[in-house]
């Protein structure tokens, strides 16, 4: 799957690039689903031996086994394949805690994955200049309900129902890096009960 071309968006939304190899003592690559392809593409131009100092954290989601074999064939120093981001989080935090100067971070896949991992990395003191991102695969959004503050993952329709409080929310483009989520606001606040048919806006 090729890179996603996003429509121009408002200024709170991050802009994603294309991963490229950068000199560094060690490399941490975090990806979900089709994000694996960004790593595989990157591997075509990496200097010899780079993967000897690379830790891959990968969450396949719906892609199952599609990419796991090829990622392992890159022979990274460590390759972890996990069932969910939450499951991978303690490991990620441990790795970031140990991070030395000269660590390069590569994030690829869904906006939700990149946003959350970006937050962990910057909280751990990794400078922005050492973190790259590349969007691949699903454009589903990680949404925060502005009313109950609960997060709903992988939202594909607008409006959608909050997984926590059950309100029907419309999807805003306003994005918070600190929460790593877009904002959802009750769609029928002014006319309770008048909820438009959900439209699949994100795939």
């Amino acid at each position: 799957m090729p890179k996603t071309a996003f429509e121009p968006s408002i200024k709170s939304r991050p802009i994603y690039g294309t991963l490229e190899p950068r000199p560094g003592k060690s490399h941490l690559m975090i990806a979900d689903a089709e994000g694996a392809e960004a790593i595989l593409d990157l591997a075509k131009s990496t200097p010899k031996g780079m993967f000897d100092h690379t830790h891959i954290i990968y969450i396949p989601k719906k892609t199952g086994e599609t990419f796991t074999g090829r990622l392992r064939e890159l022979n990274p120093a460590q390759c972890y394949v996990g069932p969910s981001y939450e499951a991978a989080l303690p490991r990620l935090r441990r790795v970031l805690n140990d991070a030395h100067m000269g660590l390069q971070v590569y994030l690829s896949g869904s906006e939700g994955l990149m946003g959350q991992a970006m937050l962990e990395a910057t909280n751990a003191g990794i400078p922005h200049s050492a973190i790259q991102t590349e969007h691949r695969g699903s454009t589903a959004r990680r949404m925060q309900c502005v009313h109950c503050k609960g997060i709903t993952e992988d939202v594909t329709t607008d409006p959608f129902q909050c997984a926590h409080c059950g309100l029907h929310l419309f999807v805003r483009d306003h994005y918070s890096r600190r929460i790593a989520a877009f904002q959802g606001v009750r769609v029928d606040a002014e006319e309770p009960g008048n909820v438009p048919e959900p439209v699949e806006r994100f795939k």
């Binding site: 200024k11 709170s12 939304r13 502005v146 306003h174 918070s176 890096r177 600190r178």
Partner: peptide, 15 residues
């Protein structure tokens, strides 16, 4: 505020 805290001038004015 809870959503916008930590944003810069251009980000919180985005909408």
């Amino acid at each position: 505020l809870d959503f916008d805290i930590g944003m810069n001038f251009f980000e919180w004015h985005a909408p």
